[in-house]
Design a protein around this nucleic acid. Structure first.
Lengths: 226, 226
DNA sequence: TTCCATATTGTTGTTAACAATAATGACCTT
DNA sequence: AAGGTCATTATTGTTAACAACAATATGGAA
């Protein structure tokens, strides 16, 4: 399929993207044992690039692979999901602090404008939580890159977010508390605009902590079955 | 070479380990462009498993690979090394906090015993900083696994430590302040033994922060050329 | 009927040959 | 002489065939 071939992208990269999005979207169910040839057929690939992609996925913790026994999508327990949020809390706290020190004024202005558009989206389509989820992702994405900490951004964007998003799709948008989250986003950006790194870190940590407790609550109420 | 074939380990894993240690030890210089066939010859591999290992290394940020242009070991600037320490600070702080909550009494006792052996090592072989470096690695390794946070341990042990160790070898043991570091280790373990997570987190963050400033100082003094 | 051993089968791991692309050098033009 | 363009070459990316291993099913014995 060379319909949407962007640029000189290798087949292995293609395979990697395909599989990653498939996992995140839930097209490949966690725990499901899946053969290589079946994957090849499903994504129009050959085993060489597929294997390379599989290795990368495994290295990122999205798949587990026992020698000669096949691969399967990793299944994360509720407990492990909470652990992911604990990691996010400290790492994104750091990202917010460094972003407050390093983002350009232009970037901060753009970020504020983004929040405005998120607000109108939420008001217009209340209930359509999809935009909120995307907006939330966009917000955290910008903070991560704004930290100018290459490795930090790489770990957040390349590792953690994919695992979290994997559950976002299944839980149909994590929080369901769009207004409150947006308010918290605004306060974080205000702190960044004032170049108050400590405050930005504190607010970001509290923000993610709140999100974690929200999910924890839902799970204990039996509203979410992971 | 089946001289030291431990167990049913796939060739790709073998290749991955070989390359990773070669990078960490400095046998593969950063920035050096190296061909696949040359790597195959050097490590007695074929291109299939090598390629898979290369993909994993790239995904972990230890190598960069431009399509059709070859691979090269990533070269990290002094600034980026400092960023790694910032990340370690928050992540290992979290690890220490969770370790204080979750390590077994036995594990804590073992950890204390390990510190004792480190102390005798330092006293006996003052100057032989290698053991100190290994001991330091061992200490942080135990805390990471003791957190019972799978993903956190994976990120620390699988990603960050390798990049840091890569420079340890080049700088011939980072700190050169063994006694002070050991004292800090002791206080951290004390906090863990008392199940004081907050204190353990605080002490661990301060410990890594001190290590970072130590290196920063050496760099600004021109004692280290990265 | 249940348990174990064995052979089969289907899978993964590996290898080597093939094709495509980018780097390199020579030649021509300005 | 300097710059650019084109052909060559060497490297990477890909493919398909081969080998090895593990899971499974079948048959027999207790």
């Amino acid at each position: 399929m060379e319909a949407a071939a962007p640029q000189s992208l290798t087949r292995a990269d293609e395979a990697f993207d395909c599989l990653q999005t498939a996992i995140v979207k839930g097209d490949l169910a966690p725990g499901e044992k899946i053969g290589e040839v079946e994957l090849c057929a499903r994504f129009n690939l050959t085993r060489g690039p597929l294997r390379e992609a599989l290795g990368r996925l495994e290295s990122r913790g999205l798949m587990v692979r026992r020698p000669h026994a096949g691969v399967k999508v990793v299944s994360v327990s509720a407990q492990e999901l909470m652990e992911l949020y604990h990691i996010r809390e400290v790492m994104e706290g750091l990202a917010a602090r460094q972003a407050a020190e390093r983002m350009t004024d232009q970037e901060i202005a753009d970020l504020q404008a983004t929040l405005d558009s998120h607000e109108t989206m939420i008001e217009q389509a209340q209930g359509q939580a999809y935009y909120q989820a995307e907006g939330d992702y966009d917000f955290h994405h910008r903070i991560a890159t704004g930290s100018r900490n290459t490795k930090l951004a790489q770990m957040l964007l390349g590792d953690l977010y994919y695992m979290v998003r994997m559950y976002r799709y299944r839980l149909s948008t994590s929080s369901g508390r769009p207004h409150r989250a947006l308010g918290e986003h605004r306060r974080i950006v205000e702190a960044i605009a004032q170049r108050d790194g400590e405050l930005a870190e504190f607010l970001m940590k509290r923000h993610i902590n709140a999100a974690r407790k929200n999910i924890e609550q839902k799970i204990s109420d039996g509203l979410l079955n992971i």
